[in-house]
Each structure stands twice: as C-alpha cells, then as structure tokens.
Amino acid sequence: MNDEPIDTGEAVRCGFVAIVGRPNVGKSTLMNRILGQKISITSRRPQTTRHQVLGVKTEGARQAVYIDTPGMHVMHKDRNRAINQFMNQAATQALRDVDCVVFIVDRTKWTDEDDVVLSRLENVKAPVIVVINKVDWLNDKSALLPWIETLKAKREFAAILPISAKHGTQVDQLEQEVASYLPESEHFFPEDQITDKSSRFIAAELVREKVMRQLGDELPYQMTVEIEEFRSEPNIIHISALMLVERDGQKKILIGEKGERIKQIGREARLDMEKMFDSKVMLKLWVKVKRGWSDDERALKSLGYHLD
C-alpha cells in the first residue's frame, strides 16, 4: 500500500481569522459551530470570553485558524478594572497580522460598543467580513436589506452575510468567504488539533461557564477558576478546581444553601468534562476569597491572564 497523501492538485492554504465584536453577539457560538464542537464557553451573560481562544479547522489542503476574542467594550467607572483592560487588549491584539476579520453584529442593533469595534478596525489591512448574527430572532426580515445598506456606508467591507450561529444558517457560506482570503502556506497545526488551549484551561473554563449560567446577575464579574490538580489515571481524570471570588458574600452565593449550588455546578461541569475528555472525571470544587484579584495585574498574570 502507498501511504503517501493523495495530491489533489489544490494549493495548500492556511491563515488566521479573528472573530471580533462587542460582548454577547455570538462570537464563541460561531466558533463552536464552525469547529463542530465546544471549545469556547458560552452564556447569556456579556464578557463570558476573557481570553483569546484558537480554534483550528482543517479540511484537506485548507486550514483556517479562528481566534475567538473577548467582547470589545466601552470602559466605564464600574468596570475600569485591570481585567476589563486585559480583555480589551486581548481582543485588539488578535487583529494583528491576521489574514481575515469576521466582525459580528447582533441583528439590526448598533451600540456605542459596536462603534468601539469599528474604530479598532480602522487600521486593519486584512479584509473584514461583517456577519449579521441571530437573524432567526428577527421578527421583520424586510429590515435586513436597508440594514445591510446602512452597514455598507460605515466602511468598505469584503462581504456582509446574515447568519444564525446557533442554528448554522449560512455558516457554510461564511466559511467559503473566509477560505477565499487564506494565503498559500503550510499548515501551522497538525490535522487532528482543534485548539491551542490545554486540558487544564478547558476544565477551568467549563467550571466558570457553569457558574455564569447558574448565577447570571447574582454574582459579579469578580470570579475566576484556577485548576490546582489535573491528574490522569487509566480510565479516570482527577481534577481539583478553586473558584476565586473577592468577598465573603460572593462565596456564600456560590456555595448556596447547604452546598446545593456548588454541587449542581460540579455535576454540570463534570458531565461536560467527561464528554470533552472522553473519560470518567472525578471533580472537586472549592471556593476561596481573594480580595482585589480582578484589579491586580500581578494577580491576573498568576491566574493565567496574560497576552500571548
């Protein structure tokens, strides 16, 4: 048998694609949809994504490396913390040296934070594709055409596509549009790799997702997760996760009455981990108060909040 790869005659292409937008427009949902599995966590709460997360999709000779980014937002007094500055910097840094940008907007809504994103794109030389997401939620579909004309007037875009990231509507067309801007290049990642993030990172994010989904507005943004142990044994992975908050009251909310809330968070996170890691998982959760961590640059770096 011949183990040599079949030469299809297609040029080998690879490039980076930044997915940007204000908070809660569906950036992580879109990347998960493109990859066909969950890499970035999602919730209805804005600013769920805090880091740049790479998602790699390889199809034959073509490899697209998507960069999911934190939502770009206006800095206000109540969220002018070091962690908010970090998120804005992480999103802006992702625009450097990419081959294509996917700029997501939420239906026909335009806010000051969309203007923030647009201003960050001013000096970007890569083609920018605008994605109008959540069109399945639009009651009046006839509003789309005039809205597309309004978007065209804001700057020159490579394309404007209405999609539904949640249901996959027109996501294939978006991928084809992105593919047209990938340069000829050797692939940067092995064919079977889908992210640059470690299993420890993904485990921490899955716990944080469950906290955000369970608590919504009950718990302020000053909560993060640190993995203290990640140990693989035959047929089981042992994971110990520390949830950090800034005040005693937040700790009580997170634990819940008779510990019921933290148990529920643990159950839901463990099920997702077992699916992700294809293994039985033994998960232990603790809550600790670490005052002021979200506004302390040294603390942020020690917790993994640093720019790549």
Rank of each mutant, 00 (worst) to 15 (best):
M1S: 11
N2E: 12
E4F: 12
E10I: 09
A11H: 08
A11Q: 15
A11E: 15
V12M: 12
V17Q: 03
I19W: 07
G21E: 05
R22P: 02
V25R: 04
G26K: 01
L30E: 06
M31V: 11
N32P: 04
N32H: 07
L35C: 06
L35D: 02
L35K: 04
I39N: 02
S40K: 02
T42G: 02
R44L: 09
P46C: 02
T49M: 05
R50D: 02
H51K: 13
Q52F: 05
G55D: 00
E59N: 15
Q63A: 01
Y66P: 05
D68T: 03
V74P: 01
M75W: 09
D78K: 14
N80R: 08
R81P: 00
I83F: 02
N84I: 00
F86N: 10
M87P: 01
A90R: 09
A91H: 03
L95H: 07
C100M: 09
V102G: 04
W110L: 07
T111P: 06
T111E: 06
E113H: 09
E113M: 11
E113S: 10
D115V: 06
V117F: 02
L118F: 00
R120E: 12
L121A: 11
L121K: 06
E122R: 15
E122Y: 10
P127D: 09
I129T: 10
V135K: 07
D136I: 08
L138A: 08
E149Y: 10
T150H: 14
T150V: 13
L151G: 03
L151I: 13
L151P: 02
K152P: 02
K152E: 09
A153C: 01
E156N: 14
E156A: 10
A158M: 03
A159Y: 14
P162G: 05
S164F: 08
A165N: 00
H167I: 08
H167Y: 14
G168Y: 04
Q170H: 14
D172P: 04
Q173S: 11
Q173L: 13
E177G: 01
V178C: 04
S180I: 03
P183S: 09
E184S: 02
F188S: 08
P190Q: 00
P190G: 01
P190C: 00
Q193R: 10
A204E: 06
L206M: 14
M212Y: 09
M212P: 00
R213C: 03
Q214N: 12
G216E: 05
L219E: 03
P220I: 05
Y221P: 07
M223N: 08
T224D: 03
I227C: 07
E228V: 07
F230Q: 09
S232P: 01
E233Y: 12
E233K: 13
P234I: 00
I237D: 00
I237F: 06
I239L: 06
D248A: 14
Q250R: 02
I253H: 04
L254I: 06
I255L: 07
I255N: 05
G256A: 07
E257F: 10
E257A: 15
E257Q: 14
G259K: 03
G259C: 06
E260I: 12
E260T: 15
G266C: 05
R267I: 14
A269M: 01
A269F: 11
A269E: 08
E274G: 11
K275A: 13
K275M: 11
L285M: 05
V287H: 06
R291K: 15
R291M: 09
G292M: 01
G292W: 10
W293S: 10
A299W: 11
L300F: 09
L300R: 06
G304C: 05
Y305Q: 02
D308R: 14
